[in-house]
């Protein structure tokens, strides 16, 4: 277990370092970094100051060391557009993104796990068909369009919820559902196929042969095994949410990091882009790490193999 964990942590650190380096490389590959860091707004003197502050007059490897040093101290720099530090922007916007992702995963799980399980148990029944439709539509529907259509239907035509922005609980419904929708398809598909595999297994027959009631066979013996691949998939879901939040927050004018990311790119505010990417990346990698650990807890075999 310890060896496995150490390996995963090492991998996570490696991935983080890779992202940071990638950002550094891209910033130096894109012409004059000083322009990037001042968004081309500043007077030549300011640019000169920036050049010095960032150590751009130093050789490249020195710059890299300085950059990594600053990162390790948590210094993500200051926005080129406003005088706010990147760290502060991220701190303000993080909760909105995080709560949206949570509501999305909640919505996705509430719908898709039961749907996947039931469609496996009652194969070829109407519920199985519903699951198939959800699975295929979820995979094929562009989320930005789904969001707009939901706004059109529920906000414009029916007037049940406000079309955009973050407010009370009800404001989470549309963006949460839209963000969760694509994940839903994946979970339903995986839950169904993994449940079918498990239902075919000898240990489920053995559990029945012990005289356990069907509900126990399903909830204890089948479900726990069937959930193992689904939990691995959860890491991919969070990955999808990172991607999705950029899109969804743009559609629903949601004041989260995804929107900051997009606006800073469109507004050519490099320090913010850099900060967002690194923090987002770190977030993503840490979640992957947690999922791996969770996986080892739920499946005892992992600790000893690998």
């Amino acid at each position: 277990m310890a060896g496995y964990l150490a390996g995963r942590v090492f991998q996570a650190i490696l991935a983080l370092w890779f992202i940071a380096t990638l950002v550094f490389a891209l910033s130096r590959a894109a012409g004059d970094p000083a322009e990037l860091f001042t968004a081309n707004l500043a007077a030549p003197e300011a640019e000169e100051m920036m050049r010095e502050r960032l150590g751009l007059d130093q050789p490249l490897y020195r710059q890299y060391v300085i950059y990594m040093g600053q990162l390790l101290q948590g210094d993500l720099g200051t926005s080129a557009r406003s005088n706010v530090t990147v760290a502060q922007i991220l701190r303000e916007r993080m909760p909105a993104t995080f709560s949206l992702a949570l509501s999305a995963i909640a919505i996705a799980i509430i719908f898709s796990i039961p749907l996947g399980v039931l469609s496996a148990i009652y194969r070829d029944s109407p519920i199985d068909w519903i699951a198939k439709v959800v699975a295929f539509l979820g995979q094929s529907m562009p989320s930005f369009w789904l969001g707009l259509m939901l706004i059109l239907l529920f906000a414009v035509i029916l007037g049940w919820v406000s079309p955009a922005g973050k407010g009370g609980i009800s404001s989470y419904l549309l963006p949460g559902f839209t963000l969760g929708w694509a994940a839903m398809a994946g979970i339903v598909r995986l839950m169904r196929s993994s449940m079918l595999d498990v239902l075919d297994s000898d240990y489920v027959t053995m559990a029945r042969a012990k005289g356990l009631p069907e509900i126990m066979v399903m909830s204890k013996h089948a479900l726990r095994n069937a959930l193992i691949p689904v939990i691995t998939y959860a890491s991919l879901i969070f990955g999808a949410f990172m991607n999705g939040s950029v899109v969804i927050e743009s559609v629903f004018a949601w004041p989260g990091i995804g929107r900051v990311a997009l606006n800073s790119v469109l507004g050519r505010d490099f320090p913010v882009v850099q900060g967002v990417v690194i923090v987002f990346g770190a977030f993503f990698i840490i979640i992957n790490l947690i999922v791996d650990i969770l996986y080892a807890v739920i499946d005892p075999r992992i600790k000893y193999s690998r």
């Binding site: 991935a15 990172m242 790119v265 490099f270």
Partner: peptide, 23 residues
């Protein structure tokens, strides 16, 4: 394989954003 794991661990759209920012 380590490299593949690394790439698969990156959020696509975010990387695309940075890429587009530069190029």
């Amino acid at each position: 394989q380590r490299f593949v794991e690394l790439i698969l661990a990156l959020p696509t759209i975010l990387v695309a954003l940075v890429f587009v920012f530069t190029f």
